[in-house]
């Protein structure tokens, strides 16, 4: 049984069809890298899985929670999948610890004490337990992104969606974030990540999805996809053709 089931998903912005019938099943514990040219629909796909966009056709089900436009369904879905953004999107008026505590307290009605314990554990997991009381503007980009990961983890999601989470970082900060993600993968977290870090994708992922013009153009284990791309478009993408 797959954890995430994406079936014949179509998404249009006006007349521009951005997703043209996506099918993708992700098993629990699987780590998937999504690659593809700019504009191929990678972000849109992830945003749909988190309910940040509505879909026009098809269905997305995550562990029994179906994507639908109403608040009840959205909430159920989002309790199962967390999302990490390129621009971190930490809440600037709250400390790192409070950022992590907020949603468990507000959405899950966890007590402040429990939420704080959880937050400390999660921040420790990303190596930032000593930054509990720091505000986002006192943290480096890499640290902010790690807090964002801790914040998503505190909701105990079954899967995490990562959209180019290292693209806004200075090169020397990329690794600290990738290490955290690698550790999560090793611990069995289900991950769907859009990334340009090809080496990381090759080392960590179970499968690589190549998107092209709104379709899953090629899919397979990293060995196959990177060593012997089958389609011209993928070879072009790698700069091999």
């Amino acid at each position: 049984m797959s954890l995430i089931a994406i079936t014949e998903v179509r998404k249009r912005f006006g007349t521009n069809e951005v997703l043209k019938g996506i099918n993708l099943d992700v098993a629990a514990g699987e780590v998937i890298a999504i690659i593809g040219k700019s504009g191929s629909g990678k972000s849109t796909l992830l945003r749909c899985i988190n309910g940040l966009e509505t879909i026009d056709e098809g269905s997305i089900v995550v562990a029994g929670a179906q994507l639908a436009a109403d608040e009840v369904h959205l909430r159920a879905l989002r309790l199962k999948v967390g999302m990490i953004f390129q621009g971190f999107n930490l809440f600037p008026h709250l400390t790192a610890g409070r950022n992590v505590m907020l949603s468990p307290m507000v959405v899950k009605k966890v007590s402040a004490k429990e939420a704080e314990e959880e937050a400390r554990v999660r921040l420790a997991q990303v190596g930032l337990d000593h930054k509990f009381d720091a505000y986002p503007d006192q943290l480096s980009g890499g640290q902010q992104q790690r807090v964002a990961i801790a914040r998503a983890l505190a909701m105990r999601p079954l899967a995490l969606l990562c959209d180019e989470i290292t693209s806004a970082l200075d090169p020397e900060l990329v690794n600290e974030v990738l290490q955290v993600v690698g550790k999560l993968a090793a611990e069995g977290m289900t991950l769907l990540m859009v990334t340009h870090e090809m080496r990381f994708a090759r080392e960590v992922c179970d499968r690589v999805v190549f998107m092209h013009q709104g379709r899953v153009h090629e899919i397979g284990p990293p060995g196959d996809v990177f060593e012997s791309p089958k389609t011209l478009e993928l070879r072009q993408f790698f700069g091999m053709a």
Binding site: N50, R78, M83, F85, F91, H93, V106, V107, M155
Partner: peptide, 27 residues
């Protein structure tokens, strides 16, 4: 308030009212 704040709080399963109350209005 940047759109990212709405999206991040959405992805954390907050409702419109919770987002307003805890994330958007304070800022």
């Amino acid at each position: 308030i940047p759109r990212g704040q709405w999206e991040a709080s959405s992805s954390l399963a907050m409702s419109y009212f919770e987002q307003m109350r805890h994330v958007v209005l304070p800022q």
